[in-house]
Design a binder for these strands. Structure first.
Lengths: 340, 340
DNA sequence: TTGTAAGCGTTATCAT
DNA sequence: ATGATAACGCTTACAA
């Protein structure tokens, strides 16, 4: 009853030993042809290749990794892949990872330190060769883990001393955004910030706003700065509050496109016109921001490139082409569209 | 010169043997406490735990996998993570994968068969336990690979005999969408389809459109059906063409939200009003579709759930709780918003 | 309850 | 140019 063994050659898994046997050579020889690690006579090579073909043999990368001590896999930790901003940078990472033959493990942290730690442990156990971390802040504990695990990491969109990173200059970008508004003769400019505990999206961008105003000798009024968050809703609410002021702003700098879209909606709902009554500039240049109506003026972050460059940096580190920390800051652009 | 060995305990990697030594027990005992696979006396267990703690030991999952013959990793193949639709379902997958302690490898196929094959080989070599495939079609070759690799796969958004899948009833959903328009007394209804070679987004949805009209005894006019694609641009172009007709439609069913947003833009640009002059219904209920202006009436696909359920199905298969093929078809909903 | 040892599928060293 | 064989770090009979 148990001679169904070879009924479907497809269902039995072969290993290097089987190939060696079938080809009539040693397993070392098979290994050599698979990896082209040492010269093998053409004739024996052919025998081996035939055997591989016939058996449908696929090398076991797990076994290989155990021996060679790397996995050709890297981790990506992102706050939430379902948020507008990240898929594009993940795509950038993945494209170059693929070029260098790395696979990627994707993790969603929800900006939650517990989850970050848990995922990191998981990835460490799975012996990733490196990690790309998207987020504004790396916690002390995570920092420690990264160091003691001795896994190279590169940060996107955040900074931490000693860890290579790729970012844009958020403060300067924000300043440019409001300078743009200032040059259009707006003098009463509101801002809907990111979370204030967020060093990049929150603090740095607010700082840029302040600087721009101060430079022009304009006082920054408390009533005009509203702490937002990351999402649509907080942009919507923020704009409602701003427009309800006795004297509402003539322009609003909203620290993310998603919030900006929320703000536009709130403003339109209240019967104001964009940009006639209020001008809006967003931040990020998320895919959709050029497609909505009215299309959004915004600060363009090179999301795909940030991913691609970060991954490129990581491969350099992994191949010892580059040593230690290095902070890459990329160019952004101010994009003018219908909302201003 | 080489006694820098213990200068930073953190930089040297320990294995199970080191732990055993430090704790004064055998490695099997250590293994047992790590995996709680067999009872261990509390006292020895404590010794082991202490040793683990002190050394900062992390088990090597690669070595473990080699032995136990599974990796607790699964693959996701998606056309393009940067496209509106997929991140949400990937998130659904990831959340339940995480619950069951699986890690995910993310791959972008660009709907390209070569890439699919290449990725599949890569994932097979890395010994994934299962695969979730997002896409409308699985090619013959890929099919073969899947079978001979003996890796369980579940499909999202497509069907293939013998492979479990989770979908919605695209034809019926499309029919409901245009029925909705019909009930609003539209009689001249245009459609911008997906790619016609796409069985779900293209063919099935067009079929639903046809059926709805036929049922009402309305002839389907060739000039009113326009083949689109997946993206914004084709929706934009399609709407332009439709509105340029001598007698333009009073409503358009657009087979994806991204295209629908493009269509809205085109229509608004030409000075028509939505929904007064033309009503629009989209398909997908992508995150942004409720946030744009005018917000989009659409068919809501439960994207997150599709991912979550697919992953749940996969875990069942992996744990032998369920056998063979099974096709899950989920509910959709027609969502009425401002564009109708 | 604990220890010994074989084996998972590779690569790489050392002979030949 | 090729072949034996010892690792890689773990789990799991089997013995004690």
């Amino acid at each position: 009853m148990d001679e169904e063994v070879e009924e479907r050659g497809s269902l039995v898994k072969f290993n290097i030993k089987d190939v060696a046997q079938k080809a009539g050579v040693s397993i070392s020889t098979v290994s050599r042809v698979i990896n082209s690690s040492k010269p093998v006579k053409q004739k024996t090579k052919d025998k081996v290749l035939d055997a591989i073909e016939e058996l449908g043999y696929r090398p076991n990368a797990i076994a290989r990794s155990l021996k060679v001590k790397h996995t050709k896999s890297i981790g990506i930790m992102t706050p939430d892949i379902a948020n507008q901003f990240y898929p594009e940078v993940v795509r950038g990472i993945e494209d170059v990872a693929n070029m260098y033959e790395y696979s990627i493990f994707l993790c969603n942290t929800d900006l939650n330190e517990e989850k970050e730690l848990q995922y990191f442990a998981e990835l460490e156990e799975k012996q990733i060769d490196g990690l790309i971390f998207l987020g504004n802040h790396v916690s002390k504990e995570l920092r420690n883990e990264m160091e003691s695990a001795d896994i190279p990491v590169v940060l996107i969109g955040g900074k931490a001393t000693g860890i290579p990173s790729v970012t844009i200059n958020n403060e300067k970008a924000a300043k440019d955004a409001v300078d743009f508004l200032l040059n259009r003769n707006h003098r009463r400019i509101g801002i809907i910030t990111g979370k204030m505990k967020d060093p990049m999206m929150g603090q740095a961008r607010l700082k840029g706003y302040q600087k721009a105003l101060e430079e022009k000798g304009i006082e920054v009024k408390e009533e005009l700065v509203i702490e937002g968050g990351y999402r649509y809703k907080s942009g919507y609410d923020g704009a409602k509050r701003l427009m309800a002021l006795k004297v509402p702003p003539t322009a609003i700098f909203v620290c993310s496109d998603e919030m900006a879209i929320g703000a536009c909606r709130a403003i339109l709902e209240d019967g104001h016109e964009i940009p006639k009554d209020v001008a809006i500039v967003g931040f990020d240049n998320v895919d959709i921001s050029g497609k909505v109506y009215p299309s959004l003026s915004t600060i363009g972050q090179p999301m795909y490139e940030m991913g691609a460059i970060a991954m490129r940096l990581l491969t350099k580190i992994l191949h010892n082409e580059s040593i230690g920390a290095s902070d890459i800051v990329l160019d952004y652009e101010v994009i003018e569209r219908e909302s201003t």
